[in-house]
Simulated scan of single mutants.
Amino acid sequence: MGRITTLRPVTRIALGEGVRRRADTLSVEEPLEIRIGGAPLAVTMRTPGHDVELAIGFLVSEGVITDRSDFLAAIHCGGPGTGGAENTYNVLDATLAPGVRLPTADESRRFYTTSSCGVCGKASIDAVRTISHHDVMQDDVTVDAEWISELPDRLRAGQAAFAKTGGLHAAGLFDAATGAQLVIREDVGRHNAVDKVIGWALQEGRLPLRGTVLQVSGRASFELVQKAVMAGIPILSAVSAPSSLAAELAEESGLTLLGFVRGRSMNVYAHEHRVRIDAVTRGDAPVQEGRAQR
């Protein structure tokens, strides 16, 4: 397995205090090529670690697999230019069950991604609207706003690598009924962190993820809503803003979308019926119309 963090010499400049040279801990970012049966499918920039979960989550998000039985095995293999002799841990070859429909060549060409932006575009929008096997709209789970407000701190407490680098996103999955933390994953790409969570869930036989809340450390992009819906997650909570397309897809798909979950406030952008607000939290104050707080 590759390194998650690395040391690099830096020059620290503090105005009025001076200049100091020291080592700084950085998050590692390296490419991962995902193959199926030896055929290249996707390339993403990621933080090494939990690569199999990442690949599985990616395949779930893109509608290639839907059940634990669809995925048989995965192995790291030699990367380009190594002649296959040296294992760089940057190429992962997955084996799927017989009968699983593999992406066509045209579909594979849209799978080349970066750590800052997941797979997106017209094809992905159509995919999540037409091939999701899990009906999020029918999940009647509800959660307390008070409990939701605690999730960012719980997520941060589980970010071991972030504490060293300050440079990784995280995604955490929580059980809405018990409040239990199920899994937390970190990555330089927010969509990769979510894929790792979904990959873990498929390996554990937990899909669809009914009755769960996905908490993410950054903004709520279209890709994250797409991945949540494809995994059957009914509630997505983010510490920053959603995009307009993310809110539209959440509304259409039946997913409860929260943004700016910070301290004791939050904005609900879609399907607020799943968020309970008791009298103490409300302060019995009347609902006021106005611009949402940032």
Rank of each mutant, 00 (worst) to 15 (best):
D278Q: 04
G49L: 03
P48D: 00
P286V: 02
G254D: 02
P48Q: 01
I34Y: 10
T142N: 08
A176G: 11
C117G: 04
A201R: 10
G218L: 06
E33F: 03
R129E: 11
G166H: 06
L173A: 12
G121A: 13
M137K: 09
A201T: 09
A180T: 09
G16S: 01
E62N: 14
R21K: 10
A176I: 11
L245V: 09
T11Q: 15
G205W: 10
Q293S: 10
S115N: 10
L173M: 11
L255Y: 08
E150C: 01
V60R: 07
A292G: 05
E204F: 04
Q181K: 06
G49F: 01
Q293C: 07
G189C: 09
A105R: 10
A123Y: 14
I198D: 05
A23W: 07
D70T: 01
A23F: 09
L15I: 10
V280W: 06
F222M: 15
L249K: 05
V60G: 07
A127E: 06
N192R: 07
E53Q: 11
A247L: 05
P40R: 09
L41F: 15
G259M: 02
G16C: 01
A97I: 00
T44R: 13
G172Y: 04
A85K: 13
G84W: 02
Q293M: 08
A123E: 15
R291K: 09
I36P: 08
G121E: 02
P9M: 05
V119P: 09
V128I: 10
T11S: 12
Y269F: 14
L32I: 08
L236N: 08
G49Q: 02
V64P: 06
A228H: 08
V239I: 09
G79F: 03
G57I: 00
R262T: 11
F71K: 04
A55Q: 02
G158A: 10
L209C: 11
K196M: 15
S240W: 13
G38V: 05
A176L: 11
H133D: 07
A193W: 07
A163T: 14
A14H: 08
L182M: 13
G167K: 13
